[in-house]
Write a protein that binds this DNA or RNA. Structure first.
Lengths: 233, 233, 233, 233
DNA sequence: TATTAAACGAGACGGTACGTCTCGTCTTCAA
DNA sequence: TTGAAGACGAGACGTACCGTCTCGTTTAATA
């Protein structure tokens, strides 16, 4: 939790602890949200319990809406209509459209994206970048990330949440790979790892956002080749 | 002109010819707009002529508004009020708020940004990246570019215009430097230049957009160091 | 309902049935609207119910605005501001400013306007015309009717609504008086009643609209005198 | 001239003198405007003289526009476009759209509408009312008068001009007929003539404005019949 | 015959109001 | 208490015209 938001189960935040444990807790319901760890539905008080189907409908509708209509057509009102849900229900659980988009994105994409387990740094890096680029290029994920990043430029909470729940979660994994390669002598000892990571991924996000050149496989091959040469011992 | 917009002097576009010639024609008036080449104010028919002061007031107000209020507070209505101008006048010349932002940005930033003229590639690159990073970090330019890029995610025309009038215009210069270094043997012969450029600048724009790490001078030093190593012969 | 408007409670229409029963159903809420007959608030589904205070505020503000500023100053925007209400709320219930004016007028004037109960036709007629003329001359009603009639020249729905809800409702009463006088031998048997009514009231509305001569009591006396002579057996 | 308007040849006004002489001076150009009396074009200074064709084009376009599009579609901007004329030219000669409409109406309708010259009052009256009703019913005149009257509800100058240049001009003729009939004993001696005129014409304008019953020939026959009975000695 | 001032077309300009859209909040009823 | 429905105040959107103001061009009386 960022602590800035007063609602008990709001859809933005939950970064620090998760980053450390590598586990991600979704604000969405069971089944959709849980990954590797049991979690009680937190039953408070008496009233009607939260409807898992409703939450799922909202997140699914969000992905569809974003994919079909793009950022401009992604409104809370339209989302509510598409999901067959009251606006109140959305506002009860998420503070903004960006927060919904982020949750929808994470719940859809997170399950994917493995990390090739190789000892060869070059192979591992290329494999991972290729997986990311293909997700951005061939699935709705690209469109959605663009939307979230755009939205985040005017929404500090969303920016922070995206950083913590997507970027940092992936960087953590990446960082480990870089460190292992450093220890095994494949990368130079004095490497500034954050900059090194940006060297590779910055280019990917840059093409995603500006689209000035395609996110081709060839691009990934060249990019990782140049990067590995630049970072090795 | 992109040819997609029917208005003779609309604020987005003017890409193709300019990219080729390296000359940029602003939709704004003389003085503001001209760079190195005489240009007729394009007298069309009779009517009252466009008011240079008004255009300037709008662009100035746009920079102020964006800097102070950010993307969220940058509305056509607010801009008109601040510039002391009718909304109609803005819509007459620009198709969207993004287009105004782009023109305002270019007319404010373009005059700056030199290119260090050195034969040493590493020095030249570092110098230029440093200049860009400092502009993004220490002037309103960074905020404005973020706003434009965000806006461009939902506005294809703006995306195209930003690409053509800012990115491409700068890449053209950069490309020349990369090629010269290639010819002098400082860079490998089979270099895929577009990817190489992204290797460097992608990281800069990534940090600009996500803000996960600061755009420090040290970052630039490391970044260009790694890149140069990765790209050399 | 005229059936031309798709909204369940739109401010124009509701003519036919009402004319027949002499009962008028306002689109406004209870208290304001009901006249002599119980009526369910038409509960549709769940959502928040219409706010009677808001409706009243709008109609009151409409009367004030029309009275003070006249037709030219009677804008939806100004009305919303004066009533402390969002424009949306007005557009939700009325299709045009004319419709608001009509409702405001009817809800303000309807409660008044008795009909002298006499067996003498001449007396009854003069009494009623005098009441109408005095309302037009001495209360805001005149100004408002002029505005509505003006607006109706370019708005067929409003014209129809004004006809049905004001004119026809009053003609129905008048027609009865004329018929009774006809049966008691005070008026000629072959009287074309519609024309007869226009003979009297046409002159009143004519002076209201053109103001070429004052709507004086003396005018009413002469007018009804001439008319009674012209229509008697 | 009303004296309220400062422009030398403005399209509203010219009431008093004309009413007295029965002659109507149009602010429009020769040929179109003059009726029975020579009039100097009032040449002031040297410049280019007013273009009769332009004026005619504007008035013709005004009639067409009003007839086709109605009051709502009758805008200065649209009129200028249709007439192939600059807005300035219209504003130079008329203070408002109502003024143009009035001039257009008068220049189109005035030439018509004779007055049957009979000694029998009933015949004369019926003849004239019939002519007016047919003009309102079967020509664009009706539509245009409705537009002008509507506009006049929010434009005192137009109201005054309409009264003086159309209503009063016709009443003057009518008054003479009523007086002659009074002298010849066909109408009662103590007749209040203004009211008497309204008795007849009020009904016509009422039906024109409200359209609650058709402006049929039969209506005219009954109307004048009842009126004549009511006014005779 | 050249001058010159008004008329004229075009259209830029600061405004106002339009009617629509979406926001985020609030209120009501049903589950 | 959740959730769907939807009323509500707020305010920006992009458009249409308003009436005023330059512009450059045309036209005809005047000097």
């Amino acid at each position: 939790m960022t602590g800035k938001l007063d609602h008990p189960a709001r859809g933005i935040g939950s970064a620090d602890a998760e980053a450390a444990s590598g586990v991600h807790r979704m604000p969405v319901m069971d089944g959709h949200a849980e990954h590797g760890q049991a979690e009680a539905p937190v039953q408070r008080g008496r009233g009607r319990t939260r409807d898992a189907a409703t939450t799922a409908a909202i997140l699914d509708a969000a992905m569809e809406q974003l994919t079909e209509k793009g950022l401009a057509g992604f409104t809370i009102e339209g989302l509510a209509a598409r999901a067959g849900v009251g606006k109140t229900t959305i506002y009860r659980w998420w503070p903004s459209r960006g927060a919904v988009a982020l949750d929808a994105f994470l719940s859809a994409v997170e399950p994917q994206v493995p990390y090739p387990d190789t000892d060869d740094f070059a192979t591992a890096l290329q494999g991972q970048v290729l997986a990311l680029v293909r997700a951005f290029r061939d699935t709705p994920a690209g469109r959605v990330v663009r939307a979230i990043l755009a939205e985040a430029q005017a929404d500090r909470d969303l920016a922070e949440a995206f950083r913590a729940r997507w970027l940092e979660s992936r960087r953590a994994t990446g960082r480990a790979v870089f460190r292992k390669a450093q220890e095994s002598g494949q990368l130079r000892q004095d490497l500034e790892i954050e900059t090194a990571i940006d060297l590779v991924y910055g280019a990917v996000y840059f093409r995603l956002m500006t689209d000035h050149q395609p996110l081709s496989d060839e691009f990934v091959v060249n990019l990782t080749d140049y990067a590995v040469r630049g970072l090795r011992a």
